[in-house]
Amino acid sequence: MAIERKPIRRGGIRSAGYDRGARVLEVEFDNGSVVQHSGVGDEIGRRFLASASPMSYYKDNIEEEFTIRRIK
């Protein structure tokens, strides 16, 4: 599944994208690793992508709440 990521470049996150239909959030970190979280609701996805502090939002609301799969 290819998800289009947009640059974020804040707080350790290089880019991220969200697929509403599949409910999958994909995050690329500054270290080059890429993960996908499944079952992420639209509201969480939108708030994460719009967050002024995306890493904090990720750690507080996504990291341990949704199934994770390492892509790279």
Rank of each mutant, 00 (worst) to 15 (best):
residue 17 G to L: 03
residue 41 G to P: 03
residue 69 R to N: 04
residue 31 N to I: 01
residue 15 S to M: 02
residue 17 G to W: 01
residue 67 T to C: 07
residue 30 D to R: 05
residue 26 E to I: 01
residue 61 N to V: 00
residue 40 V to F: 10
residue 69 R to K: 10
residue 27 V to A: 05
residue 44 I to G: 08
residue 19 D to I: 01
residue 48 F to S: 07
residue 42 D to R: 12
residue 20 R to C: 13
residue 20 R to I: 11
residue 64 E to A: 13
residue 6 K to G: 12
residue 45 G to E: 09
residue 51 S to N: 10
residue 49 L to H: 06
residue 19 D to M: 02
residue 36 Q to D: 15
residue 34 V to W: 00
residue 29 F to P: 02
residue 42 D to L: 13
residue 18 Y to Q: 11
residue 31 N to P: 00
residue 2 A to Y: 12
residue 3 I to L: 07
residue 27 V to D: 01
residue 46 R to I: 12
residue 26 E to H: 05
residue 18 Y to F: 11
residue 28 E to H: 01
residue 60 D to L: 09
residue 14 R to L: 13
residue 48 F to M: 01
residue 13 I to K: 07
residue 37 H to A: 08
residue 15 S to P: 00
residue 14 R to N: 12
residue 46 R to K: 15
residue 38 S to V: 10
residue 9 R to C: 11
residue 6 K to N: 11
residue 49 L to T: 09
residue 20 R to P: 06
residue 53 S to E: 15
residue 29 F to G: 01
residue 10 R to Q: 10
residue 26 E to R: 07
residue 10 R to C: 09
residue 1 M to G: 14
residue 58 Y to I: 02
residue 35 V to A: 15
residue 3 I to V: 03
residue 35 V to E: 13
residue 23 R to A: 15
residue 32 G to N: 08
residue 45 G to V: 04
residue 21 G to A: 14
residue 62 I to A: 04
residue 47 R to E: 15
residue 11 G to W: 06
residue 35 V to T: 08
residue 7 P to S: 06
residue 29 F to K: 08
residue 14 R to F: 11
residue 38 S to H: 12
residue 65 E to K: 12
residue 63 E to D: 10
residue 8 I to A: 04
residue 5 R to T: 09
residue 56 S to R: 12
residue 68 I to W: 01
residue 66 F to Y: 12
residue 55 M to E: 13
residue 50 A to W: 00
residue 23 R to C: 13
residue 18 Y to G: 10
residue 20 R to F: 15
residue 30 D to P: 00
residue 36 Q to F: 03
residue 43 E to P: 00
residue 51 S to Y: 09
residue 49 L to M: 10
residue 49 L to A: 05
residue 21 G to T: 12
residue 5 R to W: 01
residue 27 V to E: 04
residue 51 S to I: 03
residue 11 G to K: 08
residue 40 V to T: 01
residue 18 Y to I: 05
residue 6 K to H: 12
residue 16 A to W: 03
residue 57 Y to P: 00
residue 41 G to M: 04
residue 13 I to D: 04
residue 62 I to M: 06
residue 3 I to Q: 05
residue 20 R to G: 13
residue 6 K to C: 07
residue 17 G to P: 01
residue 19 D to E: 05
residue 41 G to L: 05
residue 55 M to A: 15
residue 26 E to S: 10
residue 62 I to G: 03
residue 71 I to E: 06
residue 1 M to K: 13
residue 49 L to G: 06
